[in-house]
Design a protein around this nucleic acid. Structure first.
Lengths: 253, 253
DNA sequence: ACAAAAGTGTTAATGATACACCCATGC
DNA sequence: GCATGGGTGTATCATTAACACTTTTGT
């Protein structure tokens, strides 16, 4: 359920008691056609979009709630999921405006005075996701990160902060394991880095760097069917990748 | 007020409505006699220590609550304060044990079933702090970070996570502005870095690196009265320091 | 044969590390 | 005068950045 000034009565409030005035927002990122994409929800009978999110149940951890929400929206388990910020301002957006816009979905009487939201970002394999709306929304879709519309709540701001956190993460941890299919080509990985960093990289230096980290293995096969020279396929070396995740120290700067 | 399974009724609950089931924990770090120190509170009529912390009021932001708590415990304003993690597990420590230990301070009937805690760390000038206990505690003291006792709640764990976050921050942002007095010597700054990183650094390389960043200015005067050669005094160049804070990219690895 | 993307090595510059001696001060 | 910590330079090594041509494939 998408978020902040979260209404008291959630669809699942009857079955599951919820932590009051606390919500999650999830920035679910995928990579497709050389673009970073983010999963957004369109609210019923509106043209208004927001991030996926929702409340935390009394009997689940905050991390578990994030995993649950991701599973509900994407169908995927076992994702790379990272807490990145708590949005705790008293006034996070124009409440009255939002209450008016959504009054046909949520009774305006039932909004909390405020809510604190914990931001998570998730990196997922675009091709494996089945976007699924929640009880308040009727459409769940990928949007190009460079082309996000005006969102409900403070969600444009949350996305900005998430991307900053992602870039910092990128500078000391490897990335891609959860964003690319199992087998991928070096140019694909490079374009992923370029997209997140917002600048181009030299292919020779990039190749050397990634190889040097030992996080990928080249396969025998090449990708066929492209209109041009067939690129080699690679696979992540999970052990080495995990080691880099915890040890850090990459310096993509 | 120190934390997690936070009791419903706080001393300030009468005057200020509180966000339920949400608390802060603050790791307040200072530097003294070449040691990192953390401010801890001893609960009334016990030998039990915990981190400072407390609830968030309905009419203040989460960041404002952290600043308020810091001000109450240290007397200081305008501190370097950083959110670093949300502790959201359903079971964070042995509730019954804690309720028993603190039953003379907090009515066991009045504990929430659980609480989520937002962790902040603060870097402060040790010499300017006046440690002040809160309504539940009778002593507020600095403890050497290498010598922390068994704490209440999950606070030993929270300190561990805070120090990890601090080391990562150190690797891409400058540090020291809030931990050292206005004027300091290069060996003092070096020992601060060594303490946080947990290893020794070469004084020549350290000096060159810090100078190269342009975040300090050497003053005319030297520090007199030491038992040895009088070291130069330095002062942070605030503008350059702030630039490094936002741009990052130090690589102390 | 041409257009489009993939693959590959070398050089220069920069940054990081290692290392040792003299200096000032208080006792 | 001696013990203690402060101050400084250079040489090596490792990493990063810059740069261009050939290969493959589909059309």
């Amino acid at each position: 359920m998408p978020d902040p000034g979260n209404p008291v009565e959630q669809p699942d409030a009857a079955q599951f008691p919820l932590l009051p005035q606390l919500t999650l927002d999830c920035i679910i990122l995928g990579f497709h056609e050389d673009q970073l994409r983010v999963l957004l929800l369109r609210w019923k009978d509106t043209q208004e979009w927001s991030l996926p999110g929702g409340p935390v149940r009394q009997n689940e951890s905050v991390d578990a709630a994030a995993h649950r929400i991701l599973k509900e929206r994407t169908g995927l388990d076992q994702l790379f999921l990272q807490q990145f910020h708590v949005f705790g301002d008293v006034v996070r957006y124009n409440r009255e405006e939002i209450k008016k816009k959504l009054k046909h979905v949520i009774d305006p009487e039932k909004w909390y005075e405020r809510a604190v939201s914990i931001g998570y970002y998730a990196l997922v394999d675009y091709s494996k996701v089945s976007p699924t709306p929640d009880a308040f929304t009727e459409e769940c879709q990928w949007w190009d990160i460079k082309n996000i519309p005006q969102l409900l709540f403070d969600h444009n701001h949350i996305i900005t902060v998430a991307l900053q956190a992602l870039r910092i993460q990128l500078s000391w941890q490897p990335i891609g394991y959860n964003l690319l299919p199992e087998e991928f080509t070096m140019p694909e990985l490079q374009r992923l880095y370029e997209t997140i960093l917002g600048r181009t990289l030299d292919p020779r230096n990039f190749h050397r760097k990634i190889q040097g980290l030992g996080i990928v293995e080249r396969l025998e096969t090449r990708r066929k069917g492209g209109a041009h020279k067939a690129p080699y396929l690679y696979r992540f070396n999970k052990a080495q990748y995990e080691a880099m995740l915890t040890e850090g120290n990459l310096s993509f700067s």
